[in-house]
Nucleic acid binder design. Structure first.
Lengths: 203, 203
DNA sequence: AGTTTTTATGTACAGATGTACACATAGTTG
DNA sequence: CAACTATGTGTACATCTGTACATAAAAACT
């Protein structure tokens, strides 16, 4: 969770001002607005994003969003890019906590269920980003970055072809599971992954 | 521009003559508006849909859309449901034209490339529908119907587990391919499908 | 000190949007 | 024929939206 302040002029002060409610000079405000935008997308959908909705979610006045972001598209682009980068970072962190001898179908099933359950908001935003990128070329890089990270991750544990195949299975299961009302069964997902890797011994 | 010449006067008025008080001067108008809504979603995204944009695309006045559809959400729901049903019907038609002895990875690759190429608009709308359903329960049935049709189709040519697995691969490949700028290579997709079905004889 | 720059905020305004609604017309019914 | 109803259309209006901008205060700078 390293803060990328490439656009803020300076990152000298990282402590909140104790008095004054921290309302005057607030170095994290820009990022906080972006995260508020993410939560708005997660809760209400990308079509409901407005300057006012984001400002309300972030607890800042309207003028603050228009000051930190030139246009609403900029705000959306920054927010979704940050969401995608967070997702990739979290994915790599998860991958680092695994050794290479694990039971791949089992851990992939865990990952699917986590994205559909506790991390549902994150998954929803990621999907909104995907579709938004269809009509906004500025967002495509963030979308394909996620795909690449997923593919690289799976490739590292198998080979190139199987990695791509498993990435597709993973993507498809997420895609199908995110709209289903009851969460899919754990055994069902694991069975699918086992069939994908050609493992017929389990059952 | 008064009444557009090609749509209202000629054709299909007489087939409504007869019984019932349901008198329609233009029986196809409602459906035509829904299809115009689909094209607007395909071209500009679901967030850009408005009464006026749909009316312009359909070549009807603004009042016509508000007359045939109580609210904009209704219009969207009807349009996306119709799009999903069209997709399912087209998919079943495609399946009927195949015998059971085909080379499954090859034909699945054809299908993926068709959805990413000539039928890209259809695929885009389907994905917009998926994401829209995340925040609109009224659209979920249409989304899951597509999933079910896909799964049933693939299951019919293999078995239940493999069918679900292949449906996930198919979904994932569409999902990833729709945002990629150059269309994915044919051999790459076919190789992935062959690996998925456990066919190692091919190179 | 004073001056300039950056950050923050409230407000105003033009444009777009959903939708109601009054009017118009065609089709049906008596 | 006339009365009635379903269908179609143009317009008005309240509301929401993005964004510009004047103002102000804090920080940076000389």
């Amino acid at each position: 969770m390293t803060t990328t302040d490439s656009e803020s002029p300076h990152a000298t002060v990282d402590e909140r001002r104790g008095r004054n409610g921290g309302s005057r000079k607030d170095p994290g405000r820009r990022e906080r607005i972006a995260r508020a935008a993410i939560s708005v997308v997660a809760e209400r959908g990308i079509e409901k994003i407005t300057h006012r909705a984001v400002a309300a979610a972030a607890g800042v006045p309207l003028g603050s969003t228009t000051y930190h972001f030139a246009t609403l598209d900029d705000l959306l682009a920054v927010a979704l890019r940050q969401a995608a980068q967070d997702n990739v970072a979290e994915l790599r962190e998860w991958a680092d906590g695994m050794d290479s001898g694990v039971d791949l179908p089992a851990v992939l099933t865990d990952l699917v269920l986590r994205y559909l359950g506790p991390e549902r908001e994150r998954t929803v935003v990621e999907h909104e980003l995907y579709v938004a990128a269809l009509h906004r070329p500025a967002l495509r890089a963030a979308s394909t970055e996620w795909d690449g990270a997923l593919r690289d991750l799976f490739t590292a544990y198998t080979d190139e072809v199987s990695g791509k195949m498993l990435a597709a299975v993973f993507c498809g299961l997420l895609w199908q599971g995110i709209v289903r009302e009851p969460l899919p069964d754990r055994d069902e997902i694991e069975t699918i992954f086992r069939r994908a890797v050609g493992d017929t011994a389990h059952g």
